[in-house]
Nucleic acid binder design. Structure first.
Length: 306
DNA sequence: AAAACGCGCAACCGCGACTGG
DNA sequence: ACCAGTCGCGGTTGCGCGTTT
């Protein structure tokens, strides 16, 4: 390939920006504002392409940029938004004033992914990395066959549903009291799931796994590592932070099934709320974002407006 | 002392969407 | 309808620098 002297002169500079280049670009944009990026290099006297100038302004020179470390609040917000929006960094950045999509993306890739994995959460699905169901001491094994196909990348919620072992509340409910009226659908902020299988008794390992799930739900809300609580009462529900985990027996002693339930409200609260005044979408702005984490993006758009 | 390694971050690249002629 | 120019996004690269071997 042969270049003549003029094409060599035109060769665009790449790589890191010098302080002089920054000054030229900054002066130009503050004087004339943001307009046609392709004409900026010529007007500002820069040997750069317009694209490079745009990026430099957006990610570094813009005066409204917030510098420095991400706060805990920003970190929590990024994780929550990522669980809903995925790798849509520009969408996420709109919720963090002064932060750029590139900055958030880098922070996610270098720091947050690692942190979530350390907490046992898959950063791409925001679900627990793996649930292992151990063997019961008496030789019966209700868990292994159900869960053996699960892997690190499987979605535990879907896998559990596939195996008919866990039932998930969708987060929406109908008001059964309105028999004659058109049934109204409410958003239930206390989405939960239940395990119900005849004859199933969780062993120590199972219990720890459910506590891990409980921990996972707790992480959704506060993202603080909580102490694993292996105390598992004879009946009733234990509470860790704002997340509850517990068991109740149904049916006769011969034909009983165990219900294990994890929800984000206290048992009493939830019973009361379900019986008396269910929540409507209008109530949602009272609830932490994490309780919306299972919603689809379409719903997210809706909830953004309220 | 210096080579190798690992990490964080700025910047690049390719692609799809948009727009105006 | 088509096309060229531009913008914006997200994945990826590679530089700079501190740490380890």
């Amino acid at each position: 390939m042969v270049h003549n002297s003029s094409s060599l002169k035109q060769k665009l500079k790449k790589g890191l920006w010098s302080p002089e280049e920054d000054q030229k670009l900054f002066n130009h944009i503050t004087k004339y504002g943001v307009g046609c990026w392709s004409s900026v290099p010529k007007q500002a006297g820069l040997q750069r392409c317009g694209k490079s100038c745009r990026l430099r302004w957006i990610n570094y020179l813009r005066p409204d940029l917030k510098r420095g470390m991400f706060t805990q609040e920003e970190e929590d917000l990024i994780i929550n938004l990522h669980s809903i929006l995925g790798n849509r960094w520009s969408r996420i950045a709109t919720q963090l004033p002064g932060r750029t999509d590139n900055e958030i993306k880098n922070f996610w890739n270098t720091s947050l992914k690692k942190k979530l994995r350390q907490k046992g959460i898959d950063p791409s699905t925001h679900k627990p990395l793996m649930i292992e169901i151990g063997e019961d001491p008496d030789g019966k094994n209700y868990g292994e066959n159900k869960f053996e196909s699960m892997s690190m990348t499987d979605n535990p919620r879907e896998a559990l549903v596939d195996h008919n072992l866990v039932y998930f509340d969708t987060g929406f409910a109908t008001d059964d009291s309105k028999e004659n009226d058109v049934k109204k659908q409410f958003f239930d902020p206390f989405s939960m799931f239940e395990v119900q299988q005849e004859g199933y008794e969780p062993n120590q390992s199972d219990q720890l796994n459910f506590v891990a799930l409980q921990n996972y739900y707790q992480n959704l809300r506060t993202l603080e590592q909580i102490q694993l609580d292996s105390s598992w009462g004879e009946s009733g529900f234990s509470e860790i932070g704002n997340v509850n985990c517990g068991r109740s027996e149904t049916g006769s002693s011969e034909n009983s099934s165990l219900r294990i339930k994890i929800s984000t409200s206290s048992w009493e609260e939830e019973q009361d709320d379900h019986q008396q005044n269910r929540y409507t979408p209008e109530d949602l702005n009272c609830f932490p974002l994490a309780s919306l984490s299972d919603l689809t993006e379409a719903n997210f758009d809706f909830f953004e407006q309220i």
